[in-house]
Computed example of a mutant assay.
Amino acid sequence: MKIYCDNAATTALDPEVIDAIIPYFSENFGNPSSSHWAGRQAREDVENARRAVAGLLGATPGEIYFTSGATEANNLALTGAIKAYGISHVITSRIEHKAVLQTLLAHEKEGDIEVSYVRLDERGNVDTYHLENLLRANPRSLISLMHANNEIGNLTDIRAISKLAERYDAIFHSDTTQTIGKIAFDLSGLEIHFIVGSAHKFHGPKGVGFLYIDKKHRIAPQIHGGGQERGQRGGTENVIGIVGLAKALEVACRNLEENQLKIWKLKEYLVSKLAISRIGDICYNGDSKSEENSIPNVVNVSFPCLPAGNIVALLDQAGIAVSGGSACSGLGTSHVIAALPCQREKENVRFSFSKFNTFEEVDQVVATITEIYKSVRAPRGRELELAII
């Protein structure tokens, strides 16, 4: 039996999304820039999708721009804001996604900006007092802090940060890739200038995402061509992806509370099963075990080092998909874990759930991990027996 617990990396297509996009492979194939009937239908479908996404997020259609995904959207927002508003100072954290960190590093190397990194507490949460001190010393900065961390699941209070941004005339960008479709948004009541989303994180197709740009802000296009996306991003629109994104977000928001509860219970169940598993010295990275301070679907667990091999690879051999990194055997660990003030010489494994996971799968995951640790602690003959099992 194959088990997929890496939903923070990507998710399976929802059946409703599949049904919605199938006609666009053969029937509704027009180019939205064409003036004939096929093009007009495609254009209408793209704009209907834009209105749907905007409505679900509390935005206006003119604030939504479709992209190839969150990486492109982050690049467009950061580079665009730096250029459009003459930004010379950016505040971020060392646990942001590399789509943010590497974009800022490139600008810093070019001499465009200076980057300050806000302090994190021992669990990886933003020190808002330090953030305010940085803003006080550097007004009119660009703040880039993610809503939820993709590895440890920590939630950032973007409402509090938006208020600081307003107070110090800063521009606020947040990578919301891990929270779109999982947490309710009402952008109409939030002073935030740029957010991003990627459809494949909420059961939509890969290769499509969006950038929200608050109507009070504008950036210059960085992809030039046919003037698509109201001149903001050239290139023929990915109609199949855009329709799929809008449908996936509709489905996600329709069942938001129900899915949140189920997925949180899966995480809670995993934590409880690990607590009685006798695996050994288990701890949790960041605030991923917290119901209040983390997203429901992510938990990051530190396991004792194995004498040989690593848990992620051994689980893969058993048909269980998770992600992580190990400092135990020279494989290194992620930049997120490395940036946490409190580090341990352990193997760090991220489990991330979706509405398609089950409690029976959690049982199997914990049983498999337990068998792995039993095998390495058993006498040589017994180890072989367990391996065969």
Rank of each mutant, 00 (worst) to 15 (best):
A52N: 07
G153R: 01
F172S: 00
F202Y: 07
K267S: 04
I282M: 07
G280A: 08
H200S: 05
A184V: 13
Y117A: 05
I240T: 04
V100Q: 03
C328R: 00
V298N: 02
A318R: 09
L155A: 03
V362G: 00
E385M: 10
T236F: 12
V349F: 03
A20D: 01
N297T: 06
K2W: 14
T177A: 15
P139T: 06
D281R: 11
H97M: 10
S35F: 12
K216D: 10
A387K: 13
I22C: 04
V299N: 00
H147C: 06
R350S: 12
F210N: 01
V376K: 01
V366T: 05
S26F: 07
K265Q: 15
S93H: 06
I22W: 03
V366Q: 03
I64P: 00
A327W: 08
L142G: 05
R350P: 05
I18A: 00
A199L: 03
D316F: 14
P296Q: 05
I279K: 01
H36I: 09
A73F: 06
G181L: 05
S375Q: 15
Y168L: 05
L120Y: 02
Y24D: 06
I161H: 04
F172D: 00
N149A: 12
S294W: 03
I22T: 09
T368L: 09
T368V: 14
Y65L: 07
N255D: 13
G124H: 01
N133F: 13
A99K: 08
